[in-house]
Simulated assay, not measured.
Amino acid sequence: MSLTASHRPPLVEEVTAKLRALIHSGEWPLQQRIPAEPELMAALGISRGTLREAIKALAHSGMLDVRRGDGTYVRATSEISGAAQRMYQDHSGEHILEVRVGLDTQAARLAARHATAGDIAAMHELLAARRVAWLAEDFSTWASADWDFHLMVAKASANPLLHELYVSFGVVFSADLLRQQRRKGFDGLPHEGHGELLEAISARDEAAAVESVTRNLNSCAEWLRE
């Protein structure tokens, strides 16, 4: 008796996996609209019903955001990130920051241990782009470069699960950063928490990396309490 047919996953699961891979790989970027239904149906050779079931599954997991009359957008790069983003809506900024303390300090410690020369070079480039954007008063680009720097630190930790969890903070982090930017006297280019952290990672100094992150997050906590 042949078992080949019974081992093939249902078509909806197969299509869901293909769409998930497009999101996870970055081929479908975050916050961008995915191709229209007719294009996807033709590319995948599937019916509208099958496609909609797959999209529904990814929307339920938090990876896609279906906007009636506008299309479907990428909301998160994984189910973990999508679920976390939904959870953050139910918690205070202070609670979210307390969780970040654990992730950030561990990411900094591991990055100081594992970061490659390429990782460090990328961090330098992001801080340079962050500086240029701030001085040009391009605050959206400044916030993106700031967040990408933190993401690179998490990636340099060489722990893919930690990096994936950290990615889920993106929307919350960027919104908080832009709110801080609007405060009178806010310094968008502090050496502490960024330059110092990069110096510690470059020097393979795990203790200094953790200390830098702790100071930076303590400053964020003070801002939340004001």
Rank of each mutant, 00 (worst) to 15 (best):
R8T: 15
P29F: 10
Y88N: 02
E27G: 14
R225F: 06
D138W: 02
A156S: 14
V74D: 07
I80E: 11
S81A: 14
R67I: 03
R48I: 05
F169K: 01
H7K: 15
M152C: 14
K18P: 05
A112D: 07
I120R: 09
L11K: 01
H150S: 07
H7Q: 15
P190I: 06
S174P: 00
A221D: 13
E37Y: 09
A36C: 03
E222T: 11
H124D: 10
L103Q: 09
A175K: 12
S6L: 08
S2A: 09
R48Q: 14
L217V: 01
W134H: 15
A43M: 07
G185F: 08
S25A: 07
R52Q: 14
A84R: 09
V66C: 08
P160E: 00
E13W: 11
Q180D: 03
D187H: 00
K56Q: 07
E199T: 13
V171M: 06
V167E: 14
A175Y: 03
F139A: 02
E79M: 11
L97Q: 06
G195Q: 07
Q31I: 00
S174V: 08
E199L: 11
L51Y: 12
L135H: 08
Q89I: 00
P38L: 06
M123H: 10
S25H: 06
A83E: 03
I96F: 02
A156F: 12
G188W: 05
A209Q: 11
R204P: 04
H163Y: 09
Y73A: 05
F173L: 00
L22N: 12
V99N: 12
E137Q: 09
A156N: 11
G170R: 05
V12C: 07
A54W: 15
I55V: 13
A115V: 08
